[in-house]
Amino acid sequence: MKNTNDLGTQIPEPSITRFLFADTRLAPLWALLRIWLGYEWLHAGWGKITNPAGVWVGDKAGAAITGFLNGALTKTQGDHPDVQGWYASFIQTVALPNAELFSYMVAYGEVLVGIALILGIFTGIAAFFGGVMNANFLFAGTVSANPLMLVVAFVIVLGWRVAGQWGLDRIALPMVGVPGAPGKLFKTSSAAQKPSAPTA
């Protein structure tokens, strides 16, 4: 007989985390956080795309990010540098040689993350990629609003199940599914491919 006290491979989720990260009654709070963060990203990205100097996207694409990255390299000195040596190596060997590509990725990435968060579509994924950008700005020695945005992105990733409830995730997630539970689109296709049982 199986021991019911044996936790096996799963640890029960505490009720407080279920309430904070999975209870749809908190959907209004998650919507406010999500929309604020989305606005911040959309505003930052749109400013880069529409910059009349064309230093992010356009004729001089890569100029702004090259200046930013070179500025980060100046922060690698001293006993407690703002930019660590491993990140400086990444800047020198990967980011600077591909400055134009990174410039487009940053500008359009910020816009796409902002739109996804505002609309509440694939909210957890959008917040994750926004957090990755925040982390890179911090690694490059830029503080600004990045710590706050990173914290908000982190909690939205934790609350992905309900963060887009007041958004398009309410429609999208049941359609595409979530880890361990395929959505309607994939259930239909997998049922069609499933071989029929042999008849006697």
Rank of each mutant, 00 (worst) to 15 (best):
N98G: 04
E40I: 14
G38E: 01
I121S: 05
A116P: 03
A88K: 00
I65A: 02
Q92W: 07
W36G: 15
A44G: 03
L32R: 06
R25C: 09
L29F: 14
A88V: 09
F129W: 08
E40S: 14
K75D: 09
A22Y: 10
I16R: 08
L29D: 02
I115D: 03
D79I: 13
T50P: 04
F122G: 08
K48P: 01
K60H: 14
A72I: 01
P12T: 09
F122I: 15
V55H: 12
A64K: 03
L20H: 12
I16V: 10
T66F: 06
F137I: 11
L117I: 03
T93M: 10
D82H: 15
L112P: 03
L20K: 08
G58M: 06
F122R: 15
A63H: 12
A88L: 03
W36Q: 12
F90I: 14
A27E: 10
D23P: 06
L20F: 14
L26A: 08
S89G: 12
G78D: 05
T76Y: 08
G78C: 08
F68Y: 10
G71A: 15
K75Q: 15
A95C: 07
T76H: 11
Q84S: 13
F102G: 00
P14E: 09
L73H: 05
F137V: 02
G54P: 08
L26R: 07
E40N: 09
D79S: 15
T93C: 00
L32A: 13
W41A: 08
V83P: 03
A126M: 01
P97Y: 00
P52I: 04
L73I: 05
A107K: 04
G85R: 06
A64Q: 05
Q77C: 02
M133A: 10
A44M: 05
D59T: 11
A31K: 11
I125R: 03
G124F: 10
A31H: 14
I35E: 06
Q92F: 07
F128N: 08
K60Q: 11
A72N: 07
I16G: 07
K60N: 12
G58R: 15
N98Q: 11
P52Y: 05
F137P: 03
K75M: 09
K60V: 10
F68K: 06
F68W: 08
G54H: 03
F19D: 07
W86K: 02
L33T: 06
V94W: 00
T50L: 12
V55K: 14
A107D: 00
Y87S: 04
G85K: 12
N136Q: 13
L112A: 10
L42T: 04
L101Y: 09
L117W: 01
G38P: 01
